[in-house]
Design a protein around this nucleic acid. Structure first.
Lengths: 239, 239
DNA sequence: CGTTCGTTTGAACGACCTCAACGATCGTGG
DNA sequence: CCACGATCGTTGAGGTCGTTCAAACGAACG
C-alpha cells in the first residue's frame, strides 16, 4: 500500500531505487481508523506524521456554532499531516471520512531521511507546497465559483488525484462520502448540494450515487468547473 | 528593511547571529513595483523568490469571466513566493496592491543556505507551511463566515501580522487598499464590502478610511470574526 | 421492527449580487 | 487655473442563489 505513496511522488518527480527504499524504511506501524473518527486533534504536539494507505480523510476546522468547513481532502498515498513536521501542532483536525488505513511516520525518521537524502527533503517540502496550492484553488472555488461549479471542481480534482495512484478510471471512481460531507467541503448546505447534484445528473454530466462518482461527460464537467489541472503540478520536473 | 524579515522569523523561532548573517547574505537586488503591477506571472519558470521589503502584495487567481480571487496577502518581511523554490513555477500571479519594494533571492542562494544551515531549511519550510495554514483559514472564511465576519477576520489577521514586523499598533494600521481589493480578497462584491464596512463603522468596531484600518473595539472585532490567532503559530518553538 | 442517518422535495426567507446613478478625489492636459 | 476623465466610494431598487425550516421517504442496523 506504500506503493500509492511512491506512485504519487513518481507522478511528479523521478525517484531512484535507493531513495524509494529509504522512504519505505521510514514507514511505521499501520492502524485502522473508523469513519468519522478523528485521528489527529488540533493543538496537540505531534512527533509523527500520518500517511493515508487507504480511504479518504479530511482536514477540517469549525466555528463556535458548529459550522464545519473541510479545508482539504486526502486520498491514498497522501500524507495527511506532513506539515506537522515543521508546525509541530496543527491548527485543524484530521478525520476519516471513510474507513481508513493509516501509517505513522515518526518525525525523527523523516529528519534522518532528509539528512541522508536532502533531495527527498525538497520533495517532501514540495508535497506540502502542493497541499497549499490545492488550498488556494479551494479559496478560489469558495470565493468565486457557484454551487454547481464548486461541486464539479471537487469531482474533477479527486478524479485526477485518484487516477494518479491507480484508483478509478476515466468513467469515474469510488467516493464513499455523504452529501453532508460534500456540503462541508464546499461551504454549502446539504440541501443545496442535493439539488445541485440533481442538476448535474439531469444535465448528463456526472452522477453521485451509492458512494461512486460516475462521470458521464468529462468535458462538460471540466467546463462547468473551469477545471485547469495546472495547480496539481503534474508535469514531471527533475527538481 | 531585511530587519522585518528577520523579525518575522524571530517571532516564531530563535535565530543565531550566524544564521541571521547567512540569511542576510542571500538577499539580492531590490526593486520597486508600482501599485497593481504584476511582478511574478503564473506558469513561468522561476529561479528566484521574492521578499517583500515594503508595501502590500497579493497572490491571485482568476476565472475566465474576469472574476478575480486573492488567495493570500503579503506584508513586509514576508516571502511572497518562497514556494516557488520547490514548485519552480506558480499557479497564480503576484501583484503589488500598494507601491512595493521587493528583493530578489536566487533559488541557488537558498539552496546553499539550507545546505550550510539545515535548520534554516526547516524554518523556511515552516514558513511555507504557515502560508498554507493561512490559506486554510481563508477557506474557512469563504466557506462559513458571512460578509461581516470575513472582513473583520481579514482586519484581525493583518493587524497581527503587521504588528509582528513593527507596523501599526493596537489602535490600527496603514492598509492602503481599495474596497475593490478588499472585495477580491473576500469573495464579495465591492458594493457589498462597502455596505459591510459601513455596518462595522456604525457598530463602532472598526473604520476603514483613507488607507487606514482604525480599530475602535478590538474585542468586538475579534468576536465578530471569531478570530483565533492559533493558526498564525505565534508561540515560539525551538524546532 | 423501531431507530437512526442520509436523501429528497417544497415553501419561504434572506444574504449578497446586479444594475444604475451620483459624488468625491485626483492627476493630467489644455 | 480650470476642465476633463478616470477611479473609487456611496446609495438605492430589484433580482437571484443559496439558506432555513419542515416533512416524508428509504436504507442500514441493532
Amino acid at each position: 500500500m506504500i506503493a500509492r505513496h511512491i506512485a504519487r511522488i513518481r507522478a511528479r518527480h523521478p525517484l531512484s531505487a535507493e531513495e524509494e527504499q529509504a522512504i519505505r524504511a521510514t514507514i511505521g506501524p499501520a492502524r485502522d481508523v473508523a469513519t468519522h473518527s478523528v485521528f489527529i486533534e488540533a493543538g496537540v504536539r505531534l512527533d509523527h506524521s500520518t500517511l493515508i494507505l487507504d480511504g479518504i480523510a479530511a482536514r477540517y476546522k469549525d466555528l463556535r456554532d458548529g459550522q464545519r468547513q473541510v479545508t482539504a481532502l486526502h486520498v491514498p498515498g497522501d500524507f495527511a499531516d506532513l506539515h506537522s513536521f515543521t508546525l509541530k501542532r496543527l491548527d485543524h483536525v484530521l478525520m476519516a471520512l471513510t474507513p481508513c488505513r493509516v501509517a505513522m511516520v515518526a518525525h525523527s525518521r523523516i529528519a534522518d531521511l532528509i539528512e541522508r537524502f536532502p533531495r527527498l527533503g525538497r520533495l517532501y517540502w514540495f508535497s506540502t507546497n502542493l497541499d497549499a496550492s490545492m488550498h488556494r484553488e479551494w479559496v478560489l472555488s469558495m470565493g468565486v465559483r457557484d454551487a454547481l461549479a464548486r461541486i464539479a471542481h471537487l469531482f474533477c480534482e479527486v478524479q485526477v488525484r485518484l487516477q494518479l495512484v491507480g484508483l478509478g478510471d476515466a468513467s469515474g471512481y469510488a467516493l464513499n462520502l455523504s452529501q453532508i460531507d460534500l456540503a462541508e467541503c464546499r461551504g454549502l448546505t446539504a440541501v443545496h448540494v442535493n439539488r445541485s447534484l440533481r442538476r448535474l445528473r439531469e444535465m448528463g454530466v456526472v452522477t453521485f450515487r451509492a458512494g461512486r462518482v460516475e462521470i458521464t461527460d468529462w468535458a462538460a464537467l471540466r467546463a462547468i468547473a473551469e477545471f485547469d489541472p495546472d495547480y496539481l503540478y503534474l508535469d514531471p520536473d527533475p527538481l
